[in-house]
Design a protein around this nucleic acid. Structure first.
Lengths: 141, 141
DNA sequence: TATTGTTATACTCTATAACTATA
DNA sequence: TATAGTTATAGAGTATAACAATA
């Protein structure tokens, strides 16, 4: 049913992690669709913290894509009134992105859905969930 | 630095899991690019097990996309000689996908790179890695 | 000269709707 | 009638190259 089998513990853990995430892809797409966002638009919105202006190029890095690509993604978010472009004071080549009030509301609801753990986590006791979180905290660094 | 903060253990674990996976996106894109595959083409190839024919529609479900979409993705894989279409015997509307020998080789190398655990897993002792795998096995169900 | 963001271009992904060939 | 896959179409994502404005 899913792509492959592991060998050593780290590889097995990583493979399982990938599999769990892959199984959540449908939920991700449904969440984006529920707010009429494309996946990249949703990621962009999630990366933009209200109150923290972010240069276009920084968003491009976070999205792992080219600057030219971000232009279009931001165009569409801006045309919906979810974000705004604002020339940076210190360097007028740079444009800062800021989330609007409407954008912050959508971002909040998107986050609430995306942070909802998939059903499989119910297979763990609260104590196991805590131990899992502790281990993953170390992996995340 | 990354998108949000959690509350209960399951949500925290899930958020960390998402963050670890997101941090690996660059590696995923590099892997696909190294073989001149688009991400969907790479996923498709990974889902196709050598020796196990898969109907187009089954691949569409695995990729969470429309049948019409799979047509183009498979067209491009087929034009590179990585997969083949073959009409199914029991129902001639169905087309089975089979990985060619060349496809199996690429698939193998892609898998080897994608299964490589990110650096963060070195932060765990072998025993912790085993315990992590055990917990994730329960989550994956 | 170098950098930020945009524009132009070309290709891929994506869904919807209409079509075909089977069933 | 219903289903599997294709085609047609339109919109969005993607990178590369060329460009404007700024540094």
């Amino acid at each position: 049913m899913a792509i492959d089998l592991p060998t050593d513990p780290a590889t097995e853990a990583w493979t399982l992690l990938s599999r769990i995430m892959m199984a959540r892809k449908g939920h991700m797409l449904e969440t984006a669709a529920a707010f009429e966002l494309s996946p990249p638009q949703m990621w962009a919105l999630r990366h933009l913290e209200p109150g923290t202006p972010l240069p276009m190029s920084a968003l491009a890095e976070l999205l792992h894509c080219d600057n030219s690509n971000v232009t279009g993604i931001v165009d569409r978010l801006e045309s919906r009134g979810l974000v705004e472009r604002r020339p940076a004071a210190h360097d007028r080549r740079v444009k800062h992105l800021i989330v609007t009030e409407a954008g912050a509301r959508v971002r909040e609801e998107v986050g609430a859905r995306m942070n909802q753990p998939p059903p499989g986590f119910e297979n763990l006791t609260p104590d196991e969930q805590r131990r899992l979180a502790t281990l993953l905290r170390k992996v995340a660094g």
